[in-house]
Design a protein around this nucleic acid. Structure first.
Lengths: 207, 207
DNA sequence: GTTCCAAAAGTGGTCAGACCAAAAACTTCC
DNA sequence: GGAAGTTTTTGGTCTGACCACTTTTGGAAC
């Protein structure tokens, strides 16, 4: 295979080809992709180059390989990746602060978005909250992120959450009452109240 | 190399070894790591396996390789993570709307963050804006994102911007005056004014 | 026809060796 | 001491060879 740009590496080219191949054929999570040997033949590249591309995607959690069976597309829930970045990269203090800061921002965005999207839908987050005694912080915001009905934001939040875990380890679980005010504010679709309730919550949980 | 756990792959083992090697030797961004051949010898593995590990780390943006020179550690601030997720996941129509929506959110966040970070610094964005006649929208927010002093947010914005371009193609360039009010609001550190100025701008530019 | 089992084929996992291209290190010569 | 040429090092890629495991296949026995 001759890389399109001189200077580009073959395995990068293969990653791109794979992407468009997946798009073109409409492959979904769980589907099988061609074997390494077939790819190497179809893309006119050495098998080792194909493997470099596949291994990279595997480490990213985008595909899964099973010896003797084949290579399959995975439902990307970037677990390994995050773990790796966590232990590998985020050593410096500034980066950690950035993560925490960004997470707070995104959570606030999710809250406001969720309020907007739920407008007139009659959904009551408060009831959901009150149905439990203790509430895992992540679980609450997972719910909110879903309500925000924006897959991208949802994914970004998840990634930040995972990042954070790989740093602090500890998972926060608080009494459900702490979330009631926030849920009420969201149900009431009151922007100011959402803001202050969230700030209050984060103070409580000593973020 | 015999993987510690049976079932674990050699290249994964090598990634781990590299990690501990970097930690042990206290290697920092910019430092050089041993050559592929030396690693393959020291770790008692084939060179192709070493390459699979290195290529994966490279795609993650953790290392950088230069032909004829060697392989070097990169600082985290180049993470491809979101990028990859972006190109891989964002395909359908809904996702496009999500991108636009998210971009607006992030821009607002950047503005507020920037205001906070500039507090008391005496920086005047207004002067910078007025120094030009026409202003590329992206350039303005690039500036704001930098002022926000949060690399992660900055990266996320850039990715959203790039993705947006790949959809709309057109780049927006507006008269500098449009940005003056927003710059003033930012300089004045007035949250409400920032919000309304940004909303007004996005209405003007028909986002 | 059905069931069961062994052989064959397919697939990922790994290694060794070869060659190329680019950069760096070294030598030679002025 | 500096410039030019040669050798060495290093990443980039391909090929072919095994191994281990899974699926498929093709009979053989019932």
């Amino acid at each position: 295979m001759i890389p399109s740009d001189r200077g580009t590496k073959v395995y990068i080219e293969i990653v791109k080809q794979l992407r468009s191949m997946i798009e073109k054929d409409g492959l979904k999570a769980g589907d099988k992709i061609p074997s390494e040997r077939e790819l190497s033949e179809r893309l006119n590249a050495g098998r080792s180059s194909v493997r470099e591309a596949l291994r990279a995607l595997e480490l990213l959690g985008l595909i899964e390989t099973r010896r003797g069976e084949g290579t399959f597309i995975r439902d990307f829930h970037g677990n390994q990746l995050v773990q790796l970045l966590g232990t590998f990269v985020l050593q410096d203090e500034k980066a950690r602060k950035d993560v925490a800061e960004t997470k707070v921002l995104i959570e606030m965005n999710c809250l406001l978005l969720a309020a907007k999207k739920c407008r007139g839908k009659g959904f009551r987050l408060k009831e959901w909250v009150q149905a439990q005694r203790m509430l895992e912080d992540d679980r609450f915001f997972q719910k909110v992120a879903e309500l925000a009905d924006n897959y991208l934001v949802c994914r970004i939040w998840q990634i930040l959450k995972d990042y954070n875990h790989s740093l602090h380890v500890k998972k926060s679980i608080f009494p459900a009452e702490w979330y009631v005010r926030l849920a009420e504010a969201l149900d009431a679709d009151s922007e100011d109240e959402i803001r202050s309730a969230y700030d209050a919550l984060r103070k409580l949980s000593e973020y």
